[in-house]
Nucleic acid binder design. Sequence first.
DNA 1: GCAAGTTTTTGTACATGTAAGGAAAGTAGC
DNA 2: GCTACTTTCCTTACATGTACAAAAACTTGC
Lengths: 222, 222
Amino acid sequence: MPQPSAPRKTLGRPPRISREEVVTTARRIVDAEGVDRLTMRRLATEIGSTPMALYHHVRNKEELLVLLLDDYATRTLHRPELPAQPRERVVVAAATIHEALAACPWIVEVLTADDLMATSALWFVEQIVDGLVACGLSPERAVHGYRAIWYYTAGEIVVRVTAARRRTDDDRPTYRERVFAELDPSELPRLAQVADQWSPLTAEDTYLDGLRALVDGLLAPR
Amino acid sequence: MPQPSAPRKTLGRPPRISREEVVTTARRIVDAEGVDRLTMRRLATEIGSTPMALYHHVRNKEELLVLLLDDYATRTLHRPELPAQPRERVVVAAATIHEALAACPWIVEVLTADDLMATSALWFVEQIVDGLVACGLSPERAVHGYRAIWYYTAGEIVVRVTAARRRTDDDRPTYRERVFAELDPSELPRLAQVADQWSPLTAEDTYLDGLRALVDGLLAPR
DNA sequence: GCAAGTTTTTGTACATGTAAGGAAAGTAGC
DNA sequence: GCTACTTTCCTTACATGTACAAAAACTTGC
């Protein structure tokens, strides 16, 4: 039985770099210098290879970012103590995911994946679906409820992050500011009424309030 | 009083193209061949100019897309008959916006603007905020409520569109499919239970249900 | 050892958005 | 007319993601 040092049964040219090495190096670059500095060329030289070689371990840059998110989630998304009350369990599970994602704003492109499918996040999804069922929803409605929560959560982060990004890009008055400055109070009275507080109001973090409202609404008898 | 043909009081070299022409031509390209075919070079040649000339009428490509969205909204977002009941008014206003945006899926990048600020959409925002106030919310809470609705709406579209985009890009089994195939029923029983229905379930259009739940939750006495 | 087959790596090439600097085309003051 | 100034436009150049084809480095069957 000869297999002293794994006698290489694999076919073809042996790889010099691995998918893991790609992801790890990418993570190092992102952590150190931000996601903007992560280019395929940079990554390749850092890893001692060529850009196109990466494409044998990663389908494209977007998939690399997905892997980075997955990696990030695995490392930072720890399971918290969840409350016993199922409704509150749903809220806390969703809020935990939200908190982790919000702290890592470079993944906006990835965030729009149709689901949060990092393996480490599945436990949270389970908690949400299960909590909704425990509150009386059918499994089908519970899945729909989870989706609604995900839409709301992903939307909040995407909107907030891109808004912040735009702000730093540019100092000129925002489109929004111009629009609000010219509001016709006779046509749009409510907006005119809150116009000068719009920016501070929308800057407030009301994710939890909205989440609670959504969960309450999902669980209310119809 | 000589001003027979508008005696050119403007300084500098007279423009040969206008922002409007840029937007109009861009719209024609997008309508005819899809947003992927809209490149700055293509647009420039179509308009009989050079790529960099466009940048004097449009800050960058993203702003061009924002303008396209604005234009699109102005043309297609007609004010519907809104129900008298304020809660229902909120729902219908939001649903109308959602419907218009969902029909025009190429604007995902733009959609993530921090607010729906096309002038033609403001009336709907007004209706939503006003409806929430009419249901008893303070103006501040009404604005937060509108934001929650916007997060939910934008999130739904972004998630759905990018999911669809990914699907056409690629025929290989989705990450999601792989993950669900390997679910451990003892650890994630609920997900295992719905695993085989996950795709059809999440493909269903439940925007309205979620919206109603959210609005109900926002308006429920706390 | 050699031919065939397989997988990884590399080199070259292209499309794209856009930065930078200067040329062009006009007005205003003289 | 000429100079200064302003605005718009054009040329060139670069960074980036990635398609494509060929080369390289293996295994397997002979």
